[in-house]
Structure formats: structure tokens, C-alpha cells
Design a protein around this nucleic acid. Structure first.
Length: 104
DNA sequence: ACGGTGACACCAG
DNA sequence: TCTGGTGCCACCG
């Protein structure tokens, strides 16, 4: 477990319920604003059962960019976000202006 | 050690 | 607003 990965996990856990953060935001909070892509990869490797609220991490455009067979999880993510009060459109889009979480 | 890969971000049309 | 191209950098084989 590299330091960076651990940091990303730590930052992701800081995202409170009902808020969402972009990969770039998490990467920046982890210390590498340019390593946004790795954040996604890291969250993916964590897999289910992890204590990390991966569903609160989305891209800066405000939508979920999961590809491949993750359609089911994509739908699940929408359910989770909706359960926290975050509105998700039919196109899986989230209003980041309203729900964006600012790291301290 | 090296090169391919990717749950992204940013800039230009 | 959307699309396409470019840059970035940690992870894995």
C-alpha cells in the first residue's frame, strides 16, 4: 500500500453524507492535483465492502464515468446518492455546484 | 526498470 | 454546452 493510495482513501472518507467531490478534488487533497485518474483506479481496486464512500466521488463534469460492466454499480451509485439527498438526473448527472464538498 | 493503461482535468473550436 | 485532443501520473505486468 503506497502512501498516495492511503492518502486518497483517507480524503475520500472525509466526504460527509449528502456531499460529493470530484476526482480532482480528492487528488488535490491527497497532494497530487494531476493524479485525478489514479483516484478512480484506486477506488475501483478497493472493491465492495470497503469503508470508502466511493459513490460520493465523481468527475468534475458532475456525472459518473464508470465504464464496462459497472452499469449495475452505476445504477447503485445513483441509489446511494439519492438516499443521501443528492439529486441525480436520468443521465446520471449531479449538480456539483450544489453538492460539492470543499476539503479543508 | 520500462511501457501500456486509465472511475480524469483542462483547453481550444 | 458538447466534442475532441492533450497532458498527467500512479499502478500493474
Amino acid at each position: 500500500m503506497t502512501n498516495f493510495k492511503q492518502r486518497v482513501i483517507s480524503c475520500a472518507k472525509q466526504i460527509p453524507r449528502g456531499r460529493a467531490a470530484s476526482y480532482g478534488q480528492v487528488a488535490a487533497a491527497a497532494g497530487n492535483p494531476r493524479a485525478a485518474r489514479q483516484v478512480g483506479g484506486i477506488l475501483r481496486t478497493l472493491g465492495p465492502g470497503s469503508k470508502v464512500p466511493w459513490w460520493r466521488v465523481i468527475n468534475n463534469q458532475g456525472y459518473i464515468s464508470i465504464k464496462g460492466n459497472w452499469n449495475a454499480d452505476k445504477n447503485l451509485q445513483r441509489e446511494l446518492l439519492a438516499g443521501e439527498g443528492i439529486e441525480v438526473s436520468d443521465d446520471f448527472r449531479v449538480d456539483m455546484k450544489k453538492y460539492r464538498f470543499i476539503f479543508n
